[in-house]
Simulated assay, not measured.
Amino acid sequence: MTEGFRYLSRQDVIALGGTLAQAALDDVCDVVTLMRHHDAEMPAETHVSLTGQRGKAYALPARVGGRFNVAGVKWTAHRPDAQDNLPQAMALTLVSRADNGLPLGLVESGALTATRTAAVSALALRHAAPRTVQRVLLLGAGVQAMAHLDMLRQLFGNLLEVSWWDRRQRSLPVDSASLPWPLVNVENFQEALSRDIDAVITCTSAAEPLLEAEAMHPGRLVIQVGYHEVSFAAIRCASRVVVDLWGDFCETSAKSLFQMYRAGEFSRERVDADLGNLLLDGWRPAAGDSVYFSSFGLNVFDIALASRVLRLAAERDTGTLLPFFPESPHAPE
């Protein structure tokens, strides 16, 4: 009989350290190295449309070797027209061992997805910013914005200031007194962009660009996490363009950069660096560069993070353990 198949809820994931920024960053760095050595892969996604609405459900497979030794698939339902007050994106990750295929577990992945996305932004802040990041402007107040705020709290305690803006003027559910730096709400982000901001992180669901060419200041890093927040003109004004990865998703993704590519206004050769170049090759921008970083979101990281929390769950005997291959009543003694 196998050990069993483990289900981890969102609460389980958080209790097991799934939202710890440094652990997620370590996972991301290890996976980037494994990808460079062809010990990790991320085939093209596939999707189906959801009935009666504009939504789609995506299957995103990946395999990761090394200390992870897993293969898995992330299943994400995007529900833009759902009227149930639940998240617009709902994700589960199924993980098996890579060496023998035995199923390990199923993990609720909303928190993991937000955490690994913020970890990639941390990597960009450390390695793709033209100058030392001291002041950050965060756009948005949803799940991704909160994950980025928490990442900044955990990994960038020496910042001078974090400003944030939300188009619906929602309040961030956070005690500003618990943060290591001032958190300043701005009503007009365009005015905030004219200040001495070192990095802008966009975490909105905007379908039309928010940032135009004037957002690309020398010495500034713009990290696009959300949908279509950065105009083609702004990307064109960036002196350096960095991506987490350039892959087949450029043909279908709604991210600003890939829309620009399909419109014939951006060439793959214009990309200056990806995560591998940042981590393994030492690529850095010049102090006077304006850098645009497009974060597509790589599901290979989701598989790695899910495997880590599943391993911890097995060690601590937490989560919900289900028998997967029960012993046959006719099995020989």
Score class of each variant (00 low, 15 high):
Val230Pro: 06
Val230Glu: 02
Phe232Cys: 09
Ala234Trp: 10
Ile235Trp: 03
Cys237Gln: 13
Val242Gly: 01
Val243Gln: 07
Asp244Glu: 04
Asp244Phe: 14
Leu245His: 03
Trp246Glu: 10
Gly247Lys: 07
Asp248Glu: 13
Cys250Gln: 15
Glu251Gln: 15
Ser253Pro: 01
Ser253Trp: 10
Leu257Cys: 15
Leu257Asp: 01
Phe258Ser: 06
Gln259Lys: 12
Tyr261Ile: 07
Tyr261Cys: 12
Ala263Arg: 11
Phe266Asp: 04
Ser267Val: 04
Ser267His: 14
Arg268Phe: 03
Arg270Asn: 10
Val271Cys: 14
Asp272Arg: 03
Asp272Thr: 02
Ala273Phe: 09
Leu275Ala: 12
Leu278Glu: 06
Leu279Phe: 09
Asp281Thr: 05
Arg284Thr: 00
Ala286His: 07
Ala287Asp: 06
Ala287Ile: 01
Ala287Gln: 01
Gly288Val: 00
Gly288Tyr: 01
Asp289His: 02
Asp289Leu: 04
Asp289Gln: 04
Ser290Met: 03
Val291Cys: 07
Phe293Ser: 04
Ser295Ala: 10
Gly297Ser: 08
Leu298Trp: 11
Leu298Gln: 12
Asn299Trp: 08
Asn299Cys: 12
Val300Ile: 14
Val300His: 01
Leu305Trp: 07
Leu305Phe: 04
Leu305Val: 14
Ala306His: 05
Ala306Gly: 06
Ser307Val: 02
Ser307His: 08
Ser307Leu: 10
Arg308Gln: 14
Val309Ile: 07
Leu310Glu: 02
Arg311Lys: 11
Arg311Ile: 02
Arg311Met: 02
Arg311Asn: 10
Ala313Pro: 01
Thr320Asp: 01
Thr320Val: 03
Leu321Asn: 02
Pro326Ser: 01
